[in-house]
Design a protein around this nucleic acid. Structure first.
Length: 286
RNA sequence: GCUGAGGUAGCCAAGGUGGUCACGGCGGAGGUCUGAAAAACCCCAGAUGUCAGUUCGACUCUGACCCUCAGCA
């Protein structure tokens, strides 16, 4: 039986490059696990790395105006991984979206409770205190489970209300939950991270400059021309947000670039904070 | 050199009739995370240009000095 590789880690560590190398070495194919590279037309700023020869799976599968969730990802990735393995091809999953990997490997905590867009739209404009009140009234149990951070987080509050109002159980139904059912021993889980903050900063700043040279600003202009805006899910993305602010005249170009770099560095930090709790990841320091 | 404005944390910045040493934002440290995750959120640290005076008490008033900006010369 073919094993699978998962390569995750901080942004800018060269994950895709490593994945492509592994693909050659182990007769494999690369599957994207980056929540932004899933989107069509987001190429330069998300750093899509399209090798001439090898196709990368799960690039460009969603339109920027569409919502895409970890559930959608797992639903696409699980059959794909099985399909490759049947053909005796080693799946090499690569990407920094750890939430997707977490759900892929360990499953979801609830029954199948899809988003209720009507509810999300309605609650989206409400104040935190109001959302808290609604959740408390709908499910005191779910409300009491929230930590200090989540209790102030509109997205999480709305999701909880959504779960509570669905009438389904918020408890996990382990046997049925959607996930990749493999033994830990069958998975080689690698994490790439920078050794220190300076290395991270240097690498990110260089990469942003490169992307600007490659035409990051034109990419955004083209997207705006196509009719996309910063309110589209796909464009709620580091780099795009800052450049849109610049193009709309809200901030200077240099300011946009600085913000872009900072956001990316902060993101890398958050990624590691999240990932390091997973004991299955074998870390490689750069 | 003169006149005007001003000097509050790494940056931007609020403030009050003198009274628990001071609002925010950015940046920084740490963190949360089960269908928005490159998202959203929590949390911590950090400041009144210098010196003197008035006062029970000054970041807030007075003076000098040092800087910055604008204008005049």
């Amino acid at each position: 039986m073919t094993n699978i590789f998962i390569i995750t880690g901080q942004t800018g560590t060269g994950k895709t490059k490593l994945a492509v190398k592994y693909a050659k070495k182990y007769k494999g194919q690369v599957i994207n696990c980056d929540s932004r590279q899933i989107y069509k037309y987001l190429d330069i700023i998300t750093g899509k790395d399209k090798p001439a020869k090898n196709k990368i799976w799960l690039y460009d599968v969603v339109d920027p105006h569409e919502h895409f969730s970890s559930y959608d990802y797992v639903k696409l990735a699980v059959p794909l991984i099985h399909k490759l393995r049947e053909k005796n091809i080693t799946p090499i999953i690569v990407g920094g979206t750890y939430l997707y990997l977490k759900h892929l490997l360990y499953g979801f905590g609830t029954e199948n409770i899809p988003p209720n867009w009507q509810l999300r739209k309605k609650l989206g404009t409400k104040q935190i205190a109001f959302l808290q009140k609604i959740l408390k009234k709908t499910s005191l149990q779910l409300f009491n489970q929230l930590n200090q951070s989540d209790i102030n987080n509109p997205q999480r509050l709305i999701r909880k209300i959504e779960i509570a109002q669905s009438g389904k159980s918020a408890k996990s139904i382990n046997s049925n939950r959607l996930r990749l059912k493999l033994l830990p021993a069958e998975i080689e889980f690698i994490g790439l991270r920078f050794k220190d903050k300076d290395k991270l900063r240097t690498a990110i700043e260089k990469r942003v400059e490169e992307r600007l040279e490659k035409g990051a600003i034109d990419e955004v202009k083209a997207l705006l021309k196509k009719g996309y805006s910063e309110t589209d899910p796909g464009l709620n993305t580091i780099g795009y947000k800052e450049i849109i602010s610049y193009l709309k005249g809200k901030i200077a170009k240099q300011e946009a670039v600085t913000q872009w770099k900072n956001k990316e560095i902060q993101y890398a930090k958050r990624q590691y904070t999240f990932m390091k709790k997973d004991p299955q990841i074998h870390w490689i320091e750069l």
